[in-house]
Structures are given as C-alpha cells and as structure tokens.
Design a binder for these strands. Structure first.
Lengths: 137, 137
DNA sequence: ACCATAGTACGACACTCGTCATAGTTTGAG
DNA sequence: CTCAAACTATGACGAGTGTCGTACTATGGT
C-alpha cells in the first residue's frame, strides 16, 4: 500500500477506503465552498500542504472541522510531520471509486471554460450561514 | 435554440442557461437524494417524464419543491402537456457548462463499479431532516 | 356548467450544519 | 522543565432547508 509519512501515528484517525464511502457523503463534503477551496488548493499544489498552509477565510477550529469532513469522506489523507498535520489529495483512489467526479469539480472550480459572463469565481452563494464579521465585539 | 414542447406557456417559469448557474447552486441541487433520484430516473427513461410519473418517497408538494430547485439549477427543462408538467434532462447543456459532472453523478448513482461491499444503493444517509412517520397524529 | 386531475404556493416546524470562542493536547525547541 | 506552535475537541448559536398539510389555480372531460 505504501504510506507517505509515518506508517502509524496514534494521533491520526482512520482513513476510509473511498469505495466504502457513500456517494451521499462525498457530495455533502463537496457542497461546502470552504472544503472545495481546500481541495482545489490541494489539487494545484506541487506538494502536500499543512493545515495552516491553506488560504481560508474561517477560524482555525472551523478549518479543523472541514478537514475532518474531507478525511472521513475519503477525499484527503492526513499524516503528521512534527506538530504539523499534512494533507494530500486522494485523487487516484477517489477517481476509482467515483470516476470523473472529483476531476469535474476541480475543473469547474478553477476554470469554467463553459462559462459565459463573470469569471469572478465568487462561489460564495449561500454557504448555509454567513455570520461573517459579527459586528465587532 | 429549438424548444421542445409549446414554445411559450405562461405557466412555465424561465429556465436559466446552465452556464450562468454557479457551481455552488448546481452542487446544492445535486446533494439531495430525492433530487438525484429524479435525475437518474430521468437519465434512464426513454422519454420525458411527467412530475407524477416519478417514484419518489415524498409528498406532492415536496416533490414540486425539488423540481423547482432542479429547474432553477439548469438541470432539467419543464413544459406543459395538458395538465401534466413534463420533465427532461438538460444533459447536453449541463455537460457543456460542467463537463463530466452530471455524468459522474448519474454513473455513481446507478452502478458504482468501483464499489466493494454493498451495492444496496441505500443512499439515504442523512438527508437533512427525516420527519418520516411523525408518530401518527 | 361541474368536477376530477395535476401541480403550485404558502406557512409552519424540526433538524442539520457551518461558525466561532475557549479549553485541552502533543510535539519541538531553548 | 518550560514555553511556544499547531491543531483538535466541545458547546453554543443562528441560519438554511427538507418536510408536510392545506389552500388555490388551471386544463380537460362529461
């Protein structure tokens, strides 16, 4: 199977096989803009990226939550390097379980050749709850 | 552009061009199991299907809501024939706006070649709110 | 005309989920 | 040993949405 980082780390929760993850769960993971941002950044990165290395507009704890959702959906693999948690896209494995799905998402996210009007990439449509900038405090 | 049914019907709300629909909105439409069921049934049907012709486990009013979401996401086209509202999959147009996306979903929904264990197709994972069988009344 | 058929619209309700703040844990360096 | 860095876990809160029932509208047939 060949792992990347340390073969076994007590801090690392188990990673499911993407083929065992229901489509429903994968789509629920993909529907959040922040999580899709993580995936596309990962897809475009040359190397694996540590949790703190992403450009995300949410707090650290929220980011942790999103990483967990992605990991449990079988979309990313995580392993520790020192105190940093590294993330890698499980592109190949996901591709075998859901052919074309992840590619289509990533391509649509960063490209939109079919698009007509704005290429603004302002994907922040609803996002469930905004709560952005809670009027100071 | 060649329409299918009656060229103009006051009862029919406007259909957006799939290329103008944000990816976010499309994914929000695709994440619901009932809506995906509509799409796959439509993908496998030989002809267009009327709203009442689908096998769905929700009430009529709820189904109406789902059809609306799909239409506004540019995924289906609706037109009246008598009192029946017909539905057709906008496969080609969606394919141009989001290459491979719809195909991947439909394929994963009805097939799962990559799958290992259960082919149970019990896609009903969370579904947001169940409320099924409200303990009588 | 009258009524059945086929859907839509509206309002209410419950439940899920994204968000943050705070506290806790583990590793690595000094 | 102590402290900083990097995350994770928990609890609370608010917003969005899937669900239903009921009321309403519009064809089509008798």
């Amino acid at each position: 199977m060949s792992y990347y980082g340390p073969v076994s780390d007590a801090r690392i929760p188990p990673h499911p096989d993407p083929r065992d993850v229901p489509l429903q769960q994968v789509l629920e993971a993909l529907v959040d803009p922040v999580r899709r941002s993580i995936l596309t950044q990962l897809a475009h990165a040359a190397d694996d990226v540590k949790c703190g290395g992403f450009d995300l507009d949410v707090s650290t704890s929220t980011a942790t939550h999103h990483f967990k959702v992605l990991r449990e959906a079988g979309l990313i693999r995580q392993y520790y390097v020192g105190t940093s948690r590294m993330n890698s896209l499980r592109g190949d494995e996901v591709g075998k379980a859901f052919p074309g799905l992840l590619d289509a998402i990533v391509a649509a996210e960063s490209g939109r050749r079919g698009q007509r009007r704005g290429t603004s990439s302002a994907t922040t449509r609803s996002g469930r709850s905004a709560k952005r900038t809670p009027s100071v405090a």
